[in-house]
Amino acid sequence: MSAYIKGALLCIIGTAAMTSNAQLDVYLSPGYGIGFSKARLDRIQDSYTSYQTYLDNNMAGDPYTADPNWDSQGRIQTLSFHLGIAGDGVMAGISYFPYRLKQERYVMQQSGYGRKFVWKEARNEVLFDVGFGSKYIDVFGSFGVNLNTYKMLSYQVYPSGHESINSEYNFNGLFSIFDAGVSFGAGLKLKVIPFLALEMRYIYASDLLPGEKRSIIEDPSALADNSFAREPGTNHYPLDYMQPLTLDNEINPNFRRSTLQFSILFYYRQND
């Protein structure tokens, strides 16, 4: 066990012991919730549309059927973790929401060949909650960061049904990018049921960190496949399939997302 973990445990237990006679609850709670989320995915939507335009222009003799474009809004679910203190007029804590989102799209040609796209978002919201706390209700504002890994997988689909991400075709690939941004929001926690808390919160996850806009660190990042197996110069996931595959034909991450989240938390109240 590392010294850091030991230290964290001692802090938590120590804080609990110190506050056990006060009117503050110390909570360490796993939670589960569903949310309604809306994202900005216009760039991968444009790319998907351009792929169909590419087929229209280059494979007109092999008609295709395509799934609808990427969903920019929908229902999401996640586990969450909460640590903090509440009561006596104050509330302060840390919340962690790991969202794992995935969408798939097929564009299948009459010949049996086609392409499968998979879009994955591994989002990690780390939020500091501060606000008013009491025995039965907490109201808080949140601020923090979102740490995200985005992946676009592009597979060749064969008539046998097999899907391959090999390097035989330039359109195949595993394009990924890490991006972080500032998050903020607000929420409400109800604690009227023993051992349970109901939480509603809004999270706005920006795609930029403070000072990142128009800075040198924003532009160079793009959805990229950095495998050595790839033909040099074709590493970026194309924004426009009608244009040559170059390092300029790229998608910079601007995938901000807002979420209205409802969670149920295990909540042990010490001061009953």
């Binding site: 997988l153 899907e163 391959s164 991400i165 090999n166 390097s167 595993l174 050595f228 197996a229 040099p232």
Partner: peptide
């Protein structure tokens, strides 16, 4: 997680597995 590449010393290329 979705792809494995074995490279036998070449700078670009390799055997790609899905």
């Amino acid at each position: 997680l979705d792809r494995v590449v074995f490279r036998a010393g070449e700078i670009f290329g390799g055997t790609v597995y899905t």
